[in-house]
Design a protein around this nucleic acid. Structure first.
Lengths: 209, 209
DNA sequence: CTCGTTTTGTACCGACCAGTCCAGCCTACA
DNA sequence: TGTAGGCTGGACTGGTCGGTACAAAACGAG
């Protein structure tokens, strides 16, 4: 089924892509503030200063817009995780870098992340499956780092799955209050968080810092 | 404005109250699965096996239903916090007990908590204000425990506000996967979480455990 | 300037939304 | 057994929903 239309984003000209990205960003703010289902098409049109026809020319459907927001977040997060993997280093260094990168994304895209964490259940079918897969991918990377730390003795014996959940919760939950132009930068938060967490799971061999 | 109707819950007979509570519980599951705005009144009626008239006889409005779910969660959480305060003990003991109680609520009311954490923005006016106040109340209790620990030297120097956010995130985020009838009980999670967190913020004086 | 394509506004669609209303059932108590 | 009132179903309302159809406007290549 060649349901192309607005989905084959890559083969559009740059101007079109830039416009689309602007629409995605603007809409993310609306979705974050009021919720996906609570935001109507007319509202989106008004916010983007576009008629329905033009809007649909860029986004294909309301759920397509939601998926685009999710993609934006996952792209950034996975790119960060890739950088960390490439950098190498000890498990605790890896964990701290992962925290830096994750909080940086949350800090730079608070609205997108809000939508990402709140509205993923509104995705259906294939889109939902892809999303779930990518998210799991990331979570497994965190688990892998923890497992490596336990294996090397750098971290004490612990349940990697459960500990990953603790780490993810601690970091992801910052989406509620971490925002650009405020008192705290991403690094201001990432550093103390890493200190707490890494001390918390350290093996008895290592000293602090 | 004597807008009594379904709001003065207390002066209804027990059967009415029990019925209302059942409706709240059933509806919480629907809201958790599909979202508040995505769930229609007809769906709620069907799930509760009630006509619209009957449903409104018990809940007053859709937002009233949402508020009732929020209340249920906050009541339980605050009751837990009260128990902890009554029990007394060192800051780290207090923190561990708070974690036990919080995860217990999340474990027992996964749907209500999901709604609580996702849909609070759908509350308006006075209901939103009350909700915000109660939530802040709780968060301040956590901060107070941390401050006390720093003051006593049991915890190292740290930003109580930021550290409270770390603790809250770590615990609250379990709403995504912590459920009754599964591998892990609330205590199974609370214990390792407390170990990570308390080791993570311990002053240099204390040893582990 | 011409002509094909991309971009745009708008009228319109059926479905469903939250909420109201009210006639009558059912039950508790006399 | 009579009857008052809590309880109930369901028709109904005005409004909004996401999405479509389509023609005009804007644009770009020749």
């Amino acid at each position: 089924m060649p349901r192309a239309d607005a989905s084959d984003v890559s083969r559009r000209n740059p101007k079109w892509q830039a416009r689309r990205e602007a629409i995605v960003d603007t809409s993310a703010r609306l979705f974050a503030r009021q919720g996906y289902h609570a935001t109507g098409l007319n509202e989106l049109c008004e916010a983007n200063d576009l008629g329905k026809g033009a809007l649909y020319h860029y986004i294909g459907s309301k759920e397509g817009l939601l998926a685009a927001i999710h993609d934006r977040v996952m792209d950034e997060v996975m790119r960060g995780a890739e950088r960390v993997a490439d950098a190498g280093g000890s498990p605790s260094a890896q964990l701290e870098m992962l925290g830096d990168e994750l909080l940086d994304v949350i800090h730079r895209y608070p609205d997108h992340v809000w939508v990402f964490l709140h509205e993923f259940r509104a995705l259906t079918g294939e889109r939902a499956a892809t999303f779930r897969e990518r998210r799991q991918d990331y979570e497994r990377r965190v688990e892998a780092v923890l497992r490596a730390g336990v294996a090397s003795g750098e971290f004490r014996e612990l349940d990697p799955w459960l500990t990953a959940r603790a780490w993810l919760g601690m970091h992801n939950y910052t989406y509620l209050w971490l925002r650009p132009g405020q008192r705290l930068t991403a690094r201001d938060v990432a550093k103390p968080f890493a200190e707490i967490f890494i001390r918390g799971i350290q093996g008895t061999a290592q000293g602090a810092e």
